[in-house]
Design a protein around this nucleic acid. Structure first.
Length: 1013
RNA sequence: GCCCAGAUGGCGGAACUGGUAGACGCGCUGGACUCAAAAUCCAGUGGUGGCAACACCGUGAGAGUUCGAUUCUCUCUUUGGGCACCA
C-alpha cells in the first residue's frame, strides 16, 4: 500500500483529459520523422526477429477489423520484441494483382492500376492511423513492374528446373471469371470467388510441378511450429497413400489362336491397363475392372467393343457432368465393355472390364481393380450391376467392416497372412514377376498457374507454334559401351517416328574403347544435320556431341544431354580408359552455347558415377533447362520414357532471359473477358517480338495466378529496391526464415503450401540454406458482427476500424481487438466492450495525476509484490500471444491503483512501459509526461524480481470428501502438520467430521487440505 | 459419410502439471453526484433456499477413474471448420 508522506501532486497534467485525437497523430508523425521503426542493419541471427503479417489484397472497400487484428497482434509482438532488445523487421505490402480490380474495370472502365493504387493509398493511411510500427521504406506492391519482374523470374527458375510445364488437359473453368482455377481455388465444386459452379474444360495450361515436392512438403511439417490442425490439413491435402500399381492384360475375341481362346487387344502389342491400389493384398478378390470414362485406352478399345453405342453414350453423358454433380450424386453408374476382358495377373482369371465415372481419371492410373468385398464403392457398384463378390479378408464383408484388417482367405499363397504382411508379400511377388511395383500416390495435383486475364504478371515465355509442328531429324548418340539400340533409344525412336519425325541412333565405332576424336570424325562423315535438327547425347555421348558441334559449328534447334558430363568425373576403373580417349580441354559447354536456342539436361540424380553437382554445373554453363528424372540410379532405361517423350521434342516454347524482364503489362487493352487473355489483342504487347526473337515467335498471353506473387513476397521485403536479384544473399542470410507469421486459416492449402514449395525450390537451386520459410505460424480468428453473423454488407453489421479509431482512438481499437478473446478464436464484436477498454485507458490517464516521486511516498511490500506479479503475467502472456489475459492483468493493477491516493512515479513508469506495445500513443504521451525525452518504445521491457512473487501468507482450501468446506489463512512458513491441525480445528470442518477419525488427510503444498472420511 | 476443433453465468471470456470454477470486460441491480440525463464513483451480481451462518445444485448429456475432474477415459448430443467416390 502506498502511503502519502508529502503530497505534491504533479502539476502538469491536472485536469487534463485523455483525448486520443490530440496525441495519436502527433506521435505517429514524430515516430516517422525519427525513423524509429527503420529496419536495423547488419543484424546477427541471434538478435534478429522477422515478424510478418499476411499480405493483404487492397480491396476497394477498405480495411476491415480482421486486417486490424492481424496488424495489431503483429505490432504488439514486434514492439515487445524490440523492447527485449531484438532487431525487428516488420513490413507491409500489397497483393495488388487480381480479379476484383479487373472486374471493376469492366464495369466502370477505370483502369485496374488506378483503382488498385487508390485502394492502396486508402489502406496505407488506415493502417498508419492504427500506429503500426512498420518500416514503410520497404513497402512493396505485387503489381509494380519492379516486383513482378521477380515473380516472372521465379517462373523462369521453375521452368529452368523442369518444374514448369505446359500441358493440355481437363481444367477447372469458371465461366463467370472466364478463367482457369487451381484445385485450391475450387471450394465444394464452386469458384471460391464468384461461387459459380466450376466446369471441366480441356485446355493447354501452365502447371508447376508441386507434386515433385509432395514428400518433402509432408516431412518439413515436422520441423516447424505451426498449429497441429494446420499441419494435418496440409498432410491430408497432399494425401500420400502407399500401395502398388499392377498391370492387367486386356484380351478380346478377335484372335482365337491366343491363350484362353482370345487375342490381346491390338493383337501385335500386348496392351496392359495399369491400376493403382492401396490394398494389393486383396487382388484375389478382384472380380472386375473399372476404367474412368476418360481413360486414354478406352478410345482404342472402342472398335473391339460389342456394345459400342452404349459405351459412347455413357462417355458422352459422363463428360457433361460437372465435378459438383459427380460429388453430389453418389449413385454409381457404369457400362460394361462387352467383348473384352482383363486377366488378373496373379491367378490368370478373366474378369469383365467396365467404365464408370466413380473412377476418376485424374487420380492414380485412372483405372482400378474392383474388390467389392472390401471396398464400399466397389460393393455398391457390384450390387447394382450384379457382379460377383468374393471375400478375401476374413470377417471383412459385413456392412461397415470393409476395411477391417484381418487374415487373408481365398488368396492362394497369401492365405492366413494378416493384412500388412499380405501386402508386403504380394508386392514382392508382383515385383519379382515384373507385373507391377510398389507405388506411392498423392492426392495433390500440379498447380495450374495460367490465367486468361489481364491484371496479373505476364508469363515470361515466347511461343512458336510452327516450331512445334515442324518435322525434324533427331540424332541420338549413345554413351560408353552403348549402341544405337541401347537403353531407352529404341522406344524413344519409335515414339519420335510415330510423330512423323526421323530418329537416327547410330552406333559409334569402338564403343568399348572410345576415342572421341574418331567418333566425331565418324559423325561428321556419316550424319547430316541442319538447323532444324535435335541432337541428344547420352552419358559419354554428351562430350561426343559437344566436340562434334564445336567442330562443325552447325546450328541446331535443340541439344539434349542425358545424364552427361563435360570432363571425366568418375573415379572407378573405367576412368583411365575414358580419360585417355580424348583431349578433354577441347570439350566445353561454352563452345556450343550459341549453337542452339534450347539446351536441356536430363539428370538422373541417383546415378552414383556422375555426381549431381557436376551435372548441375554443366547445366548452368549452358543456361540449360534441368530436368530431374527420378530413378533408382539406373542411368536411364525404358522407365524414363515419359520424361524423354516430354523433353526431347521441340516444344516451341522459349523462356526469356532475365535481361528481358520484366515483360510489362501493356496499357492498350480491352478488359472484356472473352475466355482469351485480353493480352491477345494488345498491339503494344506483341510489338517488336518477331523482330527481336525471330519470325513466328509470339508472347505467351496468359498471366500468372496471383498466388505466385504472394508466394515469395516475404523475400522481397528483405531487399525491396534490389534490381539485380529478388533479394541479396546477405539479406537472405541475415533475416530469413520468418520468425513469426500471422495469417488466415483460409490459406492453409493454397498460399502456405505454395510458399513452402517456392522456398524448397530456392533451396534446391542453391539460393538459400533453409527450406521452410515460416518457423512459427499462427492464424487469427474471424471477427463476427455484433449479431454473431459474419460481417457483411448484406447484414449491415460491418465495423470499420477507422470509425472506431475516430470515435475512441487507435489505442482503444487496438486493445479492444486483442481483449475480445484468444487471437486464434472466432469472436463477435461488441461495442460495449470497446467502451470498457476506453474506460480503462481513461483510468490509466487519470493515474498520472496521482504520481509522486518515490522519495515522497513509502511503498508497502504488497504494492511491490502486486507490481511484480503483474509484470510476470504480462511478460509471459505477451510472449505467448495471450494478449487478452495480459490486458486483464493490467486492468487489475489499475483498478487497485485507482483507489490509492498516490502512486510512485517509478511504478507508474513500469506500467507505461508494459502498456507501450498495446497502446503505444498513450504510453508515449504518459512517458513524456513523466519527464522522459526519449521514446518509450526504445525502453527495455521491465523485469520482475522472483523473490517478490513469493506469498507471505497462504490461503489453504480445506475439503471434506472432495467438497470445499472452509478456507484457512496461514503464514507461508507454516508446516504441513500445523496446517493440517488448523484445518481440522476449523468449526465448519469439525462439524463435517462428526467426531469421527478421518481415514486419510491429503495435503497439496500451499494449496489445500483434503480430508477423506 | 469421413477427419479436426469446440461447448464454462444474461454476453465475450479466465482457470497452473487433476487441487478454492467464473479472473478481466460487457450487461444488469441498488446507491452517491445531478434539477435531470450522460459521464464518473461506490456496492452487489452463477442458480435455488435461508435474516444469517450455511446448505444443495452447477463447466453440453450420461457413465467411469480419483480423496478431488472444466481438466483424464468411454459413449452420446450439438456448434464451427475441413475433405468429399482419391481406389
Amino acid at each position: 500500500m502506498a502511503r502519502l508522506r508529502c503530497a505534491t501532486p504533479s502539476k502538469r497534467n491536472i485536469m487534463n483529459t485523455y483525448d486520443p485525437q490530440k496525441i495519436e497523430g502527433k506521435w505517429q508523425a514524430r515516430w516517422g520523422q525519427d525513423g524509429l521503426y527503420k529496419t536495423p542493419e547488419n543484424v546477427t541471427k541471434k538478435e534478429k526477429m522477422y515478424i510478418l503479417p499476411q499480405l493483404p489484397y487492397p480491396s476497394g472497400s477498405g480495411l476491415h477489423v480482421g486486417h486490424a487484428e492481424v496488424y495489431t497482434a503483429c505490432d504488439i509482438y514486434a514492439r515487445y520484441q524490440r523492447m527485449l532488445g531484438k532487431s525487428v523487421l516488420q513490413v507491409i505490402g500489397w497483393d495488388s494483382f487480381g480479379l476484383p480490380a479487373e472486374n471493376y474495370a469492366i464495369k466502370t472502365n477505370v483502369h485496374p492500376r488506378k483503382s488498385t493504387e487508390d485502394a492502396i493509398d486508402n489502406f496505407r493511411s488506415q493502417i498508419k492511423s492504427l500506429g503500426i510500427s512498420v518500416d514503410w521504406d520497404r513497402e512493396v506492391g505485387s503489381h509494380n513492374p519492379d516486383y513482378y519482374k521477380w515473380t516472372q523470374w521465379f517462373f523462369l527458375l521453375m521452368y529452368k528446373r523442369g518444374l514448369a510445364y505446359r500441358k493440355k488437359q481437363l481444367v477447372n473453368w469458371c465461366d463467370d471469371c472466364k478463367t482457369v482455377l487451381a484445385n485450391e481455388q475450387v471450394i465444394e465444386g464452386k469458384c471460391e470467388r464468384s461461387e459459380t459452379v466450376v466446369v471441366q474444360k480441356e485446355m493447354e495450361q501452365w502447371y508447376l510441378r508441386i507434386t515433385d515436392y509432395a514428400d518433402r512438403l509432408i516431412d518439413g511439417l515436422d520441423t516447424i511450429d505451426w498449429p497441429e490442425e494446420t499441419k494435418k490439413r496440409q498432410r491430408d491435402w497432399i494425401g500420400r497413400s502407399e500401395g502398388a500399381q499392377i498391370d492387367f492384360k486386356i484380351v478380346c475375341d478377335c484372335c482365337p489362336h491366343r491363350p484362353h481362346g482370345k487375342g490381346t487387344i491390338g493383337c501385335a502389342n500386348d496392351l496392359e491397363v495399369t491400376v493403382f491400389t492401396t490394398r494389393p493384398d486383396t487382388i484375389f478378390g478382384a472380380t472386375y475392372m473399372v476404367l474412368s470414362p476418360e481413360h486414354v485406352f478406352v478410345k482404342s478399345f472402342l472398335d473391339r467393343v460389342e456394345n459400342r453405342k452404349d459405351v459412347e453414350k455413357y462417355i458422352k453423358q459422363a463428360s457433361k457432368r460437372t465435378e459438383l454433380e459427380r460429388q453430389v450424386d453418389q449413385d454409381k453408374t457404369g457400362v460394361e465393355l462387352k467383348g473384352i476382358t482383363a486377366i488378373n495377373p496373379v491367378n490368370g482369371e478373366e474378369i469383365p472390364v467396365w467404365i464408370g465415372d466413380y473412377v476418376l481419371a485424374s487420380y492414380g492410373t485412372g483405372a482400378i481393380m474392383s474388390v467389392p468385398a472390401h471396398d464400399e464403392r466397389d460393393f455398391a457398384f457390384a450390387t447394382k450391376y450384379l457382379l460377383p463378390i468374393r471375400e478375401v479378408v476374413a470377417g471383412g464383408t459385413a456392412e461397415g467392416a470393409f476395411t477391417n484388417p484381418g487374415a487373408a482367405v481365398n488368396s492362394d499363397f497369401l492365405n492366413r497372412l494378416p493384412t500388412e504382411q499380405a501386402k508386403e508379400k504380394i508386392i514382392q511377388f508382383i515385383e519379382e514377376k515384373g507385373i507391377g511395383k510398389r507405388k506411392v500416390q498423392y492426392r495433390l495435383r500440379d498447380w495450374s498457374v495460367s490465367r486468361q486475364r489481364f491484371w496479373g504478371a505476364p508469363i515470361p515465355m515466347i511461343v512458336n507454334e510452327e516450331r512445334r509442328e515442324k518435322k525434324r531429324t533427331f540424332v541420338l548418340i549413345h554413351g560408353f559401351r552403348g549402341r544405337g539400340d541401347s537403353n531407352y533409344f529404341p522406344r524413344l525412336q519409335q515414339f519420335l517416328e510415330a510423330q512423323g519425325h526421323t530418329g537416327i541412333a547410330p552406333t559409334l565405332p569402338d564403343a568399348d574403347q572410345p576415342n572421341l576424336d574418331e567418333q566425331v570424325e565418324f559423325l561428321i562423315n556419316n550424319i547430316k544435320i541442319d538447323e532444324d535438327s535435335v541432337i541428344l547425347g547420352h552419358s559419354l555421348g554428351g562430350p561426343v556431341i559437344m566436340k562434334w558441334l564445336a567442330k562443325t559449328k552447325q546450328k541446331v534447334a535443340k541439344v539434349i544431354f542425358s545424364d552427361s558430363f563435360y570432363e571425366p568425373v568418375f573415379n572407378d576403373h573405367d576412368r583411365p580408359l575414358v580419360e585417355k580417349s580424348t583431349d578433354w580441354k577441347a570439350v566445353s559447354p561454352e563452345a556450343i552455347k550459341n549453337l542452339a536456342d534450347e539446351f536441356v539436361c536430363v539428370i538422373d540424380n541417383q546415378f552414383p558415377i556422375i555426381p549431381q553437382e557436376h551435372s548441375e554445373q554443366f547445366a548452368k554453363k549452358l543456361d540449360a533447362r534441368i530436368v530431374y528424372a527420378k530413378s533408382n540410379g539406373e542411368h536411364f532405361d525404358d522407365a524414363h520414357q515419359p520424361v524423354f517423350e516430354e523433353e526431347v521434342p521441340v516444344s516451341g516454347l522459349l523462356p526469356l532471359h532475365v535481361e528481358d524482364l520484366p515483360v510489362l503489362l501493356p496499357d492498350d487493352v480491352d478488359f472484356k473477358p472473352t475466355g482469351q487473355s485480353p493480352l491477345t489483342y494488345s498491339e503494344d504487347f506483341s510489338k517488336g517480338v518477331e523482330e527481336k526473337y525471330g519470325k513466328g515467335w509470339k508472347r505467351e498471353v496468359d498471366t500468372l495466378d496471383t498466388f505466385m506473387c504472394s508466394s515469395w513476397y516475404y523475400y522481397r521485403y528483405l531487399d525491396p529496391h534490389n534490381d539485380k536479384e529478388f533479394a541479396s544473399p546477405n539479406m537472405l542470410k541475415q533475416w530469413m526464415p520468418v520468425d513469426f507469421y500471422l495469417g488466415g486459416a483460409e490459406h492453409v492449402n493454397g498460399h502456405l503450401l505454395y510458399s513452402r514449395f517456392f522456398t524448397k525450390v530456392l533451396h534446391d537451386a542453391g539460393y538459400i540454406d533453409f527450406d521452410e520459410p515460416f518457423l512459427t505460424h499462427r492464424h487469427q480468428g474471424i471477427i463476427l458482427g455484433e449479431d454473431n453473423r459474419k460481417m457483411s454488407k448484406r447484414w449491415g453489421n460491418v465495423i470499420n476500424p477507422t470509425d472506431v479509431v475516430n470515435e475512441y482512438g487507435a489505442d482503444t481499437c487496438r486493445m479492444y481487438e486483442m481483449f475480445m478473446g484468444p487471437l486464434e478464436e472466432t469472436k463477435p464484436w461488441n461495442t460495449g466492450g470497446v467502451k470498457g477498454i476506453r474506460r480503462f485507458l481513461d483510468k490509466v490517464w487519470k493515474l498520472q495525476d496521482k504520481t509522486h516521486n518515490a522519495d515522497t511516498i513509502t511503498q508497502g511490500a504488497d504494492a511491490e509484490a502486486l507490481l511484480h506479479k503483474t509484470i510476470k503475467k504480462v511478460t509471459d502472456d505477451t510472449a505467448t500471444l495471450q494478449f487478452n489475459t495480459a490486458i486483464a492483468k493490467m486492468m487489475e493493477l489499475v483498478n487497485v491503483w485507482a483507489k490509492e491516493d498516490a502512486i510512485s512515479k517509478d511504478h507508474f513508469g513500469v506500467l507505461v512501459t508494459m502498456l507501450a506495445p498495446y497502446a503505444p500513443h498513450m504510453a508515449e504521451e504518459l512517458w513524456h509526461g513523466l519527464g522522459h525525452t526519449n521514446s518509450v518504445t526504445t525502453q527495455s521491457w521491465p523485469s520482475y524480481d522472483a523473490l517478490l512473487l513469493v506469498e507471505e501468507r497462504l490461503t489453504i482450501a480445506v475439503q471434506v470428501n472432495g467438497k470445499l468446506r472452509a478456507t484457512i489463512d496461514v503464514p507461508a512458513d507454516t508446516t504441513e502438520d500445523e496446517i493440517k491441525q488448523k484445518a481440522l480445528a476449523e468449526p465448519n470442518i469439525e462439524k463435517w467430521l462428526e467426531g469421527k477419525e478421518p481415514k486419510k488427510i491429503i495435503y497439496v503444498k500451499g494449496r489445500l487440505v483434503s480430508v477423506v472420511m
